[in-house]
Simulated assay, not measured.
Amino acid sequence: MPSQLTAPFNPPLLFKNPHFQTIYPTFARQHQPFIKWQRLELNDGDFVELALNGALTAEPLPIVIMLPGLEGSLESHYIKRLLGKISQLNTLAIVLHHRGCGQSPNRLWRSYHSNDQMGLIALVNMLKAQYPQRPLFAVGYSMGANLLANYLSAHSEITKAALISPPFDLALSAQMMNDGVRRIYRRYLLESLKQRLINKIDVFANAPLSLADVKAVRSIAQFDELYTAPGCGFADANDYYQKASCINKLATIQTPTWLLRAVDDPVIDPLPEDFQAKLSPHVYTQITPYGGHVGFCDSLLAKRSWLDKMLIQWFALEARKGENKNVIKTNKNAV
């Protein structure tokens, strides 16, 4: 295990509750850095939106690519919090929004899915072509971590990566969200997904689905069967889950990668028994007893986060002493 990853996660008693870990950070007040928005066109006629905390230059300094989870965005607590800290270090970061999750709905009838790599491939190719001397770091959260793991299994352009709370078995994760208190998370995510699809139906005159079809959906698996799978070229939801789950891709990752998961994660599937056998030697795993789903908080103070501290250490980010003058300073008055 690299020395940057040896710090244990020992939260106070209150933070040992997985639901508190998962939910509390969403209510914490965060400073919003100034952001520049940019569209990135894709080969299929669609686009994704990038949120940058500065201007791209040829300086040989690292760029951090951030991939949110399902229905996540610049407003997600884990994105906003780390982005603010990266900005204070004068380091450039780019939030890669999934199709339709930025400022504007995407053009096509289809949306994004858990292995929709087209945006990430386009972004990395653009950065490597225009700024070949700049190291690229990438951190993916939840579904974004699953997507990033799939990408890393076949590409080596990224210098260093982090996978935070990645689901391994998408079918099992979807099924488990129908159980007990997990339905809280299902309801939150499903309402957002359904509303996004309803908005599409209002725009597309020949939409193949009706409002009644969408309103009848009661689970993530039903949503994926109705819309995600057929819209993105899969035979059905099971075909989608099988092809998009990252568990069988971890063995071929060649990029130094930190993988962090909590045993008490209340959102995603539990660790499989043969998990360690499926790992590449380049993947450094840290499994903590506590942490919830993309939580890993150890203080009620929003600015303090064990997760952010570890990510900054893993990527060896340091204050640049104004070297990258194109990074936009944090807006201290923003919420």
Rank of each mutant, 00 (worst) to 15 (best):
H293L: 07
C101M: 14
S305Y: 06
P18H: 08
L50I: 01
N125I: 03
L279A: 10
T330G: 10
R186S: 13
G233N: 10
A58H: 13
Q133H: 12
V124W: 02
K128N: 11
Q276A: 15
L120N: 05
H19T: 06
P12L: 11
K249P: 03
W306L: 06
L170W: 02
Q88T: 12
Q21Y: 04
M126R: 15
G295L: 07
V214A: 11
S192C: 10
V217K: 02
N238G: 05
A207D: 06
H155E: 14
Y131R: 02
K329L: 12
A277G: 13
P18A: 08
D46I: 10
Y112T: 05
L50W: 00
K215R: 14
Y141V: 04
N331C: 13
N90M: 04
D179E: 12
Q117I: 12
L42Q: 01
T228S: 10
K160W: 02
L52S: 00
P2W: 03
E71V: 12
P8Q: 08
K200W: 08
W314V: 01
T255N: 09
P266N: 10
H293M: 10
T22S: 15
S153M: 05
P256L: 08
L50Y: 00
E323N: 09
Q286T: 14
L136K: 00
S219Q: 09
N248G: 04
R99V: 03
I184C: 07
A302G: 07
H19F: 11
A122G: 10
I23G: 04
N106A: 08
P25Q: 05
F34C: 09
L42W: 01
I253Q: 04
V263N: 07
G69Y: 00
G54E: 00
V263D: 08
Q286F: 07
R99H: 09
Q4P: 07
S114D: 04
Y284Q: 14
L136S: 01
I121D: 12
E157N: 09
R29P: 02
I220S: 02
D274I: 03
S192K: 15
Q4W: 09
A149H: 01
S3F: 09
G291W: 02
R81H: 13
Q242W: 10
D213N: 14
I220M: 15
Q133L: 13
G72E: 02
V214Q: 06
I220H: 06
F34G: 03
V267Y: 03
A171Y: 14
N90S: 15
D265F: 04
A237C: 11
P33A: 10
P281F: 01
